[in-house]
Protein backbone atom coordinates (compact mmCIF):
# COMPACT_ATOMS: atom_id res chain seq x y z
CA UNK A 1 0.00 0.00 0.00
CA UNK A 2 1.20 3.46 -0.80
CA UNK A 3 2.40 5.39 2.19
CA UNK A 4 0.19 8.33 2.96
CA UNK A 5 1.80 11.51 1.80
CA UNK A 6 0.18 13.83 4.24
CA UNK A 7 2.85 16.27 5.29
CA UNK A 8 2.90 16.78 8.98
CA UNK A 9 5.51 19.49 8.59
CA UNK A 10 3.35 21.38 6.13
CA UNK A 11 0.27 20.99 8.23
CA UNK A 12 1.84 22.19 11.44
CA UNK A 13 3.80 24.99 9.78
CA UNK A 14 0.51 26.22 8.38
CA UNK A 15 -1.12 26.09 11.77
CA UNK A 16 1.67 28.08 13.35
CA UNK A 17 1.98 30.55 10.50
CA UNK A 18 -1.73 31.21 10.66
CA UNK A 19 -1.52 31.97 14.32
CA UNK A 20 -3.44 29.83 16.74
CA UNK A 21 -5.34 26.99 15.21
CA UNK A 22 -9.05 27.53 15.04
CA UNK A 23 -10.12 28.04 18.60
CA UNK A 24 -12.70 25.76 20.12
CA UNK A 25 -16.11 27.28 20.61
CA UNK A 26 -16.30 28.89 24.03
CA UNK A 27 -19.28 26.80 25.06
CA UNK A 28 -17.38 23.60 24.45
CA UNK A 29 -14.55 24.77 26.66
CA UNK A 30 -17.00 25.70 29.35
CA UNK A 31 -18.72 22.37 29.02
CA UNK A 32 -15.43 20.56 29.34
CA UNK A 33 -14.62 22.52 32.46
CA UNK A 34 -17.92 21.62 34.03
CA UNK A 35 -17.48 18.02 33.04
CA UNK A 36 -14.12 18.04 34.73
CA UNK A 37 -15.62 19.38 37.90
CA UNK A 38 -18.28 16.70 37.83
CA UNK A 39 -16.08 13.97 36.43
CA UNK A 40 -15.52 12.07 39.60
CA UNK A 41 -12.20 10.96 38.17
CA UNK A 42 -11.12 7.67 39.70
CA UNK A 43 -7.43 7.65 38.93
CA UNK A 44 -6.37 11.07 37.66
CA UNK A 45 -5.81 14.09 39.84
CA UNK A 46 -7.56 17.23 38.62
CA UNK A 47 -4.33 18.44 37.02
CA UNK A 48 -3.69 15.10 35.33
CA UNK A 49 -7.25 14.98 34.13
CA UNK A 50 -6.90 18.40 32.49
CA UNK A 51 -3.58 17.52 30.89
CA UNK A 52 -4.84 14.18 29.59
CA UNK A 53 -7.98 15.83 28.23
CA UNK A 54 -5.93 18.51 26.47
CA UNK A 55 -3.60 15.91 24.96
CA UNK A 56 -6.52 13.82 23.72
CA UNK A 57 -8.10 16.91 22.24
CA UNK A 58 -5.06 17.38 19.98
CA UNK A 59 -4.77 13.66 19.13
CA UNK A 60 -8.21 13.73 17.56
CA UNK A 61 -9.05 17.44 17.42
CA UNK A 62 -12.38 19.15 16.83
CA UNK A 63 -11.02 22.21 15.01
CA UNK A 64 -13.10 21.18 12.03
CA UNK A 65 -16.25 21.79 14.00
CA UNK A 66 -16.99 18.08 14.28
CA UNK A 67 -16.68 16.18 17.52
CA UNK A 68 -13.26 14.89 18.49
CA UNK A 69 -11.68 13.24 21.50
CA UNK A 70 -12.59 16.07 23.87
CA UNK A 71 -16.26 15.94 23.01
CA UNK A 72 -16.12 12.13 23.15
CA UNK A 73 -14.65 12.39 26.66
CA UNK A 74 -11.80 10.06 25.79
CA UNK A 75 -10.22 11.18 29.06
CA UNK A 76 -13.08 9.55 30.97
CA UNK A 77 -12.54 6.32 29.06
CA UNK A 78 -8.86 6.36 30.02
CA UNK A 79 -9.60 7.23 33.63
CA UNK A 80 -12.13 4.41 33.93
CA UNK A 81 -9.61 1.94 32.54
CA UNK A 82 -6.74 3.07 34.75
CA UNK A 83 -9.06 2.94 37.76
CA UNK A 84 -10.73 -0.28 36.63
CA UNK A 85 -10.17 -1.97 39.97
CA UNK A 86 -11.11 1.05 42.08
CA UNK A 87 -14.74 1.44 41.14
CA UNK A 88 -17.19 1.52 44.03
CA UNK A 89 -19.88 -1.15 44.02
CA UNK A 90 -22.39 1.59 43.26
CA UNK A 91 -20.66 2.28 39.92
CA UNK A 92 -19.83 -1.18 38.58
CA UNK A 93 -20.38 -4.81 39.50
CA UNK A 94 -16.92 -6.00 38.38
CA UNK A 95 -13.54 -4.49 37.45
CA UNK A 96 -14.06 -2.33 34.37
CA UNK A 97 -12.25 -4.38 31.74
CA UNK A 98 -14.87 -5.95 29.44
CA UNK A 99 -18.42 -4.73 29.27
CA UNK A 100 -21.09 -7.37 29.62
CA UNK A 101 -23.43 -8.11 26.68
CA UNK A 102 -25.36 -8.96 24.77
CA UNK A 103 -27.45 -5.82 24.24
CA UNK A 104 -26.83 -2.11 24.78
CA UNK A 105 -30.50 -1.16 24.52
CA UNK A 106 -29.72 1.31 21.74
CA UNK A 107 -31.19 -0.87 19.02
CA UNK A 108 -34.72 -2.27 18.64
CA UNK A 109 -35.87 -5.79 17.99
CA UNK A 110 -36.71 -6.54 14.36
CA UNK A 111 -40.35 -6.83 13.41
CA UNK A 112 -40.69 -10.10 11.51
CA UNK A 113 -44.31 -9.41 10.61
CA UNK A 114 -44.11 -5.91 9.18
CA UNK A 115 -40.43 -6.06 8.24
CA UNK A 116 -37.87 -3.59 9.45
CA UNK A 117 -37.41 -2.41 12.98
CA UNK A 118 -40.03 -2.77 15.66
CA UNK A 119 -40.70 -0.19 18.33
CA UNK A 120 -39.64 -2.58 21.09
CA UNK A 121 -36.20 -2.21 22.62
CA UNK A 122 -34.44 -4.68 24.88
CA UNK A 123 -33.21 -3.34 28.20
CA UNK A 124 -29.49 -2.69 28.34
CA UNK A 125 -27.46 -5.62 29.59
CA UNK A 126 -24.54 -3.26 30.05
CA UNK A 127 -26.08 -1.33 32.90
CA UNK A 128 -28.50 -2.39 35.59
CA UNK A 129 -31.68 -0.54 36.51
CA UNK A 130 -29.75 1.76 38.82
CA UNK A 131 -27.38 2.77 36.04
CA UNK A 132 -24.55 0.74 37.48
CA UNK A 133 -22.20 -0.56 34.77
CA UNK A 134 -22.02 -4.32 34.33
CA UNK A 135 -18.77 -6.00 33.33
CA UNK A 136 -17.71 -9.58 32.69
CA UNK A 137 -16.26 -11.36 35.70
CA UNK A 138 -12.49 -11.82 35.56
CA UNK A 139 -12.39 -15.57 35.94
CA UNK A 140 -9.38 -17.60 37.00
CA UNK A 141 -6.26 -15.49 37.33
CA UNK A 142 -7.38 -12.88 34.84
CA UNK A 143 -7.67 -10.17 37.49
CA UNK A 144 -4.02 -10.73 38.24
CA UNK A 145 -3.00 -10.16 34.64
CA UNK A 146 -4.98 -6.93 34.35
CA UNK A 147 -3.70 -5.63 37.65
CA UNK A 148 -0.15 -6.34 36.52
CA UNK A 149 -0.77 -4.42 33.30
CA UNK A 150 -2.08 -1.45 35.24
CA UNK A 151 0.07 -1.55 38.37
CA UNK A 152 3.22 -3.41 37.45
CA UNK A 153 4.91 -6.81 37.80
CA UNK A 154 5.05 -6.70 41.61
CA UNK A 155 1.42 -7.84 41.59
CA UNK A 156 2.80 -11.15 40.35
CA UNK A 157 6.41 -11.26 41.54
CA UNK A 158 5.51 -10.41 45.15
CA UNK A 159 2.50 -12.75 45.30
CA UNK A 160 3.45 -15.75 47.47
CA UNK A 161 0.41 -17.72 46.27
CA UNK A 162 1.87 -18.04 42.79
CA UNK A 163 4.40 -20.70 41.77
CA UNK A 164 7.98 -19.52 42.28
CA UNK A 165 9.14 -20.38 38.75
CA UNK A 166 6.29 -18.32 37.26
CA UNK A 167 7.15 -15.36 39.45
CA UNK A 168 10.78 -15.76 38.45
CA UNK A 169 9.90 -15.86 34.75
CA UNK A 170 8.06 -12.55 35.10
CA UNK A 171 10.84 -11.05 37.21
CA UNK A 172 13.54 -12.06 34.73
CA UNK A 173 11.49 -10.66 31.88
CA UNK A 174 11.21 -14.08 30.22
CA UNK A 175 7.51 -13.40 30.01
CA UNK A 176 7.29 -9.87 28.64
CA UNK A 177 5.14 -7.28 30.38
CA UNK A 178 4.73 -3.75 29.06
CA UNK A 179 5.52 -0.82 31.39
CA UNK A 180 2.69 -0.49 33.91
CA UNK A 181 0.06 1.89 32.60
CA UNK A 182 -0.74 3.81 35.77
CA UNK A 183 2.83 4.96 36.42
CA UNK A 184 3.35 5.49 32.68
CA UNK A 185 0.48 7.98 32.74
CA UNK A 186 1.55 9.62 36.01
CA UNK A 187 5.08 10.28 34.82
CA UNK A 188 4.14 11.01 31.21
CA UNK A 189 1.44 13.57 31.95
CA UNK A 190 3.77 15.38 34.37
CA UNK A 191 6.45 15.40 31.70
CA UNK A 192 4.10 16.95 29.15
CA UNK A 193 3.34 19.72 31.66
CA UNK A 194 7.05 20.24 32.23
CA UNK A 195 7.68 20.58 28.53
CA UNK A 196 4.83 23.05 28.17
CA UNK A 197 6.17 25.13 31.05
CA UNK A 198 9.61 25.33 29.50
CA UNK A 199 8.28 26.03 26.03
CA UNK A 200 5.44 28.42 26.77
CA UNK A 201 5.31 29.04 30.47
CA UNK A 202 2.10 27.20 31.26
CA UNK A 203 0.55 23.83 31.98
CA UNK A 204 0.01 21.79 28.82
CA UNK A 205 -3.72 22.43 28.92
CA UNK A 206 -3.18 26.19 29.07
CA UNK A 207 -0.70 26.78 26.25
CA UNK A 208 -1.91 27.59 22.70
CA UNK A 209 -2.97 24.66 20.57
CA UNK A 210 -0.18 25.47 18.12
CA UNK A 211 2.33 24.86 20.89
CA UNK A 212 0.49 21.75 22.01
CA UNK A 213 0.64 20.41 18.47
CA UNK A 214 4.34 21.15 18.25
CA UNK A 215 4.96 19.26 21.48
CA UNK A 216 2.91 16.31 20.26
CA UNK A 217 4.74 16.29 16.95
CA UNK A 218 7.98 15.84 18.85
CA UNK A 219 6.54 13.24 21.18
CA UNK A 220 5.17 11.21 18.31
CA UNK A 221 8.56 11.13 16.67
CA UNK A 222 7.30 13.21 13.80
CA UNK A 223 9.26 15.94 12.16
CA UNK A 224 10.27 18.85 14.32
CA UNK A 225 9.12 22.34 13.53
CA UNK A 226 11.43 23.92 11.05
CA UNK A 227 12.77 27.44 10.93
CA UNK A 228 12.84 28.74 14.44
CA UNK A 229 14.99 26.11 16.05
CA UNK A 230 12.91 26.45 19.18
CA UNK A 231 11.45 22.98 19.06
CA UNK A 232 11.00 21.85 22.62
CA UNK A 233 12.79 18.76 23.78
CA UNK A 234 10.54 16.00 24.99
CA UNK A 235 11.30 14.26 28.20
CA UNK A 236 11.51 10.51 27.98
CA UNK A 237 8.35 9.78 30.03
CA UNK A 238 6.26 11.90 27.67
CA UNK A 239 7.67 10.17 24.62
CA UNK A 240 6.98 6.79 26.23
CA UNK A 241 3.42 7.72 27.04
CA UNK A 242 2.58 9.19 23.66
CA UNK A 243 1.87 6.01 21.63
CA UNK A 244 -0.12 4.54 24.50
CA UNK A 245 -2.11 7.72 24.99
CA UNK A 246 -2.80 8.00 21.28
CA UNK A 247 -4.09 4.41 21.13
CA UNK A 248 -6.20 4.85 24.26
CA UNK A 249 -7.63 8.13 23.00
CA UNK A 250 -8.75 6.51 19.77
CA UNK A 251 -10.19 3.57 21.69
CA UNK A 252 -12.05 6.02 23.90
CA UNK A 253 -13.46 7.71 20.82
CA UNK A 254 -14.75 4.65 19.01
CA UNK A 255 -15.48 2.05 21.72
CA UNK A 256 -18.93 1.39 23.12
CA UNK A 257 -20.10 4.46 25.08
CA UNK A 258 -20.46 2.20 28.11
CA UNK A 259 -16.67 2.32 28.50
CA UNK A 260 -16.86 5.99 29.40
CA UNK A 261 -15.86 7.66 26.13
CA UNK A 262 -17.63 8.07 22.79
CA UNK A 263 -20.19 10.22 24.55
CA UNK A 264 -23.65 9.95 23.02
CA UNK A 265 -22.06 7.75 20.33
CA UNK A 266 -21.13 10.99 18.57
CA UNK A 267 -17.91 9.54 17.18
CA UNK A 268 -19.82 6.71 15.54
CA UNK A 269 -21.98 9.28 13.80
CA UNK A 270 -18.83 11.12 12.73
CA UNK A 271 -17.49 7.86 11.29
CA UNK A 272 -20.89 6.87 9.82
CA UNK A 273 -20.66 3.63 11.77
CA UNK A 274 -23.70 1.85 13.15
CA UNK A 275 -21.86 0.63 16.23
CA UNK A 276 -23.37 -2.33 18.00
CA UNK A 277 -26.46 -3.30 16.00
CA UNK A 278 -28.09 -6.14 17.95
CA UNK A 279 -30.82 -7.26 18.18
CA UNK A 280 -31.85 -5.54 14.93
CA UNK A 281 -28.72 -6.30 12.92
CA UNK A 282 -28.20 -5.21 9.34
CA UNK A 283 -30.60 -7.58 7.61
CA UNK A 284 -34.12 -6.35 7.73
CA UNK A 285 -36.69 -9.08 7.38
CA UNK A 286 -38.97 -8.81 4.39
CA UNK A 287 -42.23 -10.69 4.91
CA UNK A 288 -42.90 -10.62 1.17
CA UNK A 289 -40.07 -13.08 0.75
CA UNK A 290 -41.05 -15.40 3.57
CA UNK A 291 -40.83 -19.14 3.07
CA UNK A 292 -43.92 -20.93 4.25
CA UNK A 293 -41.94 -23.62 5.96
CA UNK A 294 -38.89 -21.89 7.25
CA UNK A 295 -40.03 -18.67 8.81
CA UNK A 296 -39.23 -15.18 7.64
CA UNK A 297 -36.78 -14.89 4.81
CA UNK A 298 -34.05 -12.35 4.85
CA UNK A 299 -34.54 -9.90 2.09
CA UNK A 300 -34.68 -6.17 1.79
CA UNK A 301 -31.81 -4.50 3.48
CA UNK A 302 -31.49 -0.75 3.52
CA UNK A 303 -27.74 -0.90 3.47
CA UNK A 304 -27.31 -3.54 0.84
CA UNK A 305 -29.66 -2.23 -1.80
CA UNK A 306 -32.52 -4.05 -3.42
CA UNK A 307 -32.43 -7.82 -3.42
CA UNK A 308 -33.57 -10.29 -5.99
CA UNK A 309 -35.96 -13.07 -5.14
CA UNK A 310 -35.09 -16.11 -3.12
CA UNK A 311 -36.70 -19.27 -4.49
CA UNK A 312 -37.21 -21.87 -1.82
CA UNK A 313 -38.42 -24.64 -4.09
CA UNK A 314 -36.64 -24.13 -7.38
CA UNK A 315 -33.42 -24.58 -5.52
CA UNK A 316 -31.47 -22.44 -3.17
CA UNK A 317 -30.56 -19.63 -5.48
CA UNK A 318 -28.03 -17.12 -4.42
CA UNK A 319 -29.66 -13.93 -3.27
CA UNK A 320 -28.58 -11.31 -5.76
CA UNK A 321 -28.31 -7.75 -4.62
CA UNK A 322 -28.43 -4.80 -6.94
CA UNK A 323 -25.71 -2.30 -6.30
CA UNK A 324 -26.90 1.06 -5.16
CA UNK A 325 -24.57 3.74 -3.86
CA UNK A 326 -24.86 4.33 -0.16
CA UNK A 327 -26.95 7.51 0.09
CA UNK A 328 -24.98 8.55 3.15
CA UNK A 329 -21.70 8.36 1.33
CA UNK A 330 -20.04 11.49 0.06
CA UNK A 331 -19.85 11.00 -3.71
CA UNK A 332 -16.40 12.55 -3.62
CA UNK A 333 -15.12 10.08 -1.07
CA UNK A 334 -13.22 7.94 -3.54
CA UNK A 335 -11.44 10.96 -4.93
CA UNK A 336 -10.62 12.15 -1.41
CA UNK A 337 -9.12 8.78 -0.54
CA UNK A 338 -7.08 8.79 -3.72
CA UNK A 339 -5.63 12.14 -2.72
CA UNK A 340 -4.97 11.00 0.83
CA UNK A 341 -3.23 7.88 -0.44
CA UNK A 342 -1.10 10.01 -2.69
CA UNK A 343 -2.49 8.33 -5.81
CA UNK A 344 -3.70 11.51 -7.48
Amino acid sequence: MARLEVSRRGFLAGAVAGGAATALPVDLVARAASVLAASGARFFTAAEYATCDALSARILPSDDGRPGAREARAVDFIDLFLGAFDLPASAADQPAIWIRGPFSGRNPYPDPIAGGASSRYPPSDMRDAAGRRRFLPLTGRRALAWRARLEGPAVITENPELPDPYRAAIKRGLIPLDPPLRSLYRAGLAAFDDVARVAAGGMFADVPTSVQDAILARASGGTSLGGGGHAPTIAQPAAQLYPVLEAHTLQGCFALPEYGGNRDAAMWRFARWEGDTQPLGNTVYDPALADADLGPAQGRNAGFGRPGVYEPRGGYREVRLVSTPDPAADPGEGAAIAVLLGLR
Binding site: L60, P61, L250, Q251, F254, A255, W273
Partner: peptide, 27 residues
Protein backbone atom coordinates in the same frame (compact mmCIF):
# COMPACT_ATOMS: atom_id res chain seq x y z
CA UNK B 1 -13.21 1.70 13.63
CA UNK B 2 -10.75 1.39 16.51
CA UNK B 3 -8.52 -0.83 14.42
CA UNK B 4 -8.68 1.62 11.55
CA UNK B 5 -7.92 4.62 13.74
CA UNK B 6 -4.96 2.91 15.44
CA UNK B 7 -3.61 1.58 12.14
CA UNK B 8 -3.78 5.02 10.56
CA UNK B 9 -1.55 6.48 13.28
CA UNK B 10 1.24 4.79 11.34
CA UNK B 11 0.83 7.48 8.72
CA UNK B 12 -0.89 10.49 10.25
CA UNK B 13 -1.74 12.21 13.50
CA UNK B 14 -4.05 14.93 14.72
CA UNK B 15 -6.20 16.74 12.19
CA UNK B 16 -4.69 14.77 9.32
CA UNK B 17 -5.65 11.54 11.05
CA UNK B 18 -9.16 12.83 11.49
CA UNK B 19 -9.51 13.70 7.83
CA UNK B 20 -8.53 10.15 6.95
CA UNK B 21 -10.96 8.61 9.44
CA UNK B 22 -13.79 10.71 8.02
CA UNK B 23 -13.47 8.98 4.64
CA UNK B 24 -12.31 5.67 6.06
CA UNK B 25 -10.09 3.93 3.51
CA UNK B 26 -9.94 0.71 5.54
CA UNK B 27 -13.28 0.38 7.22
Amino acid sequence: PIFEAMAMTQVAHGAALKRILAVSPFR
